[in-house]
Amino acid sequence: MKNTKLFAYLQLTRPANVITAIADIWAGFAIAGAWDYMATNWIYGDQQFWWNLLWLSLSTIGLYAGGVAFNDVADADLDAIERPERPIPSGRASKKTAFWMSSLLLVFGIFCAFQVNQVAGFLAISVAACAVLYDYWGKHQRILGPINMGLCRSGNLLLGVSVAPEVLEKIWPIGLLPLIYVAAITMISRGEVHGKNRKALFAGAGMYASIFVAIFGLAYLESPGYLQVIPFLALLGYMIFPPLAKAIRTQEPKFIGKSVKAAVISLIIVNASLASAFSGWPIGIIVLLLLPISLWLAKKFAVT
């Protein structure tokens, strides 16, 4: 019984999705130049890099897990009607316990970020606030909802960049990329229950395409070896466009859900592409190593 209860609370945190959030941090380190610095100074045993990477990885685990668990707390009554199999409406998890678990996870995430620097700490507060705002208000807003959700992911990527505040000050607009990508996912996901959202699916496809153009453009500007980003973008296209095309053809909730799941997991590939664009393909591969972990967890726990 205890194991069943533990599994139910783990379900609330969407473990496969949490791995995608860690990829945000690792990509943010690449954008900040931290991986390059570590590679140059590894012989001197630079421990600060590893501590910063650990603290911010732990921070995003707390922030993401707490944010998505709060989503189930906020949706408990609606899920009792539309998705009664979920942990809270099924009775496998207590709404009150889930509330406190979510709160503690967010506090933990903020605490860990402050161990790196104040900029990271205040960014973590912003991410937590955006997550709770989306759970209780944003998701019900047709236009602002996707933007609200996208801001959560933007803040998470910038949380990784905040390891070097001076770089963050210059390159913060890069946060628009995850905002657009996640806004597209959020818009498409509204058809998971009832389907018939063809316009949103086509709009999402266009927003995905803009991400490809932007990442390739950044690679071209940042690196003379910009062509190395192409395999990452090809993998990203293979992951997201076939299930999206099937969702557009069928308009069925089942296939829309599969499209959303593929796009969420593929956030790791988006981050690997960004890491490759800024720090070269070896760092892109390091980020991409998170993908099989996320895919394995996606078989055990729901992604959406």
Rank of each mutant, 00 (worst) to 15 (best):
L236C: 11
I25N: 05
P178I: 05
V18C: 14
Q141I: 06
L12D: 05
S154Y: 13
R14K: 15
R83Y: 09
N197A: 06
N41I: 00
F301M: 14
A30I: 06
L227S: 02
L58K: 12
W42F: 14
A21C: 12
L58M: 14
Y37C: 03
K199F: 14
N71S: 12
C130K: 00
S94K: 11
L105I: 06
G225K: 12
A113Y: 03
A39S: 10
G284M: 07
F301I: 05
P253K: 01
Y37A: 11
S189H: 05
A23W: 01
V303A: 04
I143S: 13
D135I: 04
W50C: 09
E169N: 01
Q118T: 06
G191N: 04
G121H: 08
P231V: 00
V270M: 13
Q251D: 10
A262E: 08
R92S: 15
K261N: 02
S94E: 12
L297V: 03
V287I: 10
A219Y: 02
F70P: 05
A209F: 15
T13S: 15
I174R: 05
I110E: 09
L236D: 10
F212C: 01
I248V: 13
G45V: 04
K300N: 12
S126Y: 02
W296F: 13
I61M: 14
A21T: 13
S266Y: 03
S279M: 02
D46I: 03
F99S: 15
K261Q: 01
E222L: 11
G62E: 11
I88H: 02
A272T: 07
H194M: 08
I110H: 08
V73E: 11
S154W: 04
R249P: 03
A302M: 03
M187T: 14
F29W: 12
P165C: 00
G67S: 04
G28F: 10
I88V: 08
W281Y: 12
L12T: 01
Q11K: 11
E222A: 08
S126H: 08
S59F: 02
K170Q: 13
S266R: 05
V229E: 09
L221P: 01
W172E: 03
A247W: 09
D46Q: 05
V270N: 10
K96C: 07
N148R: 00
N52Q: 13
L227H: 03
F29G: 08
L104S: 13
L104D: 05
D75Q: 06
T60I: 15
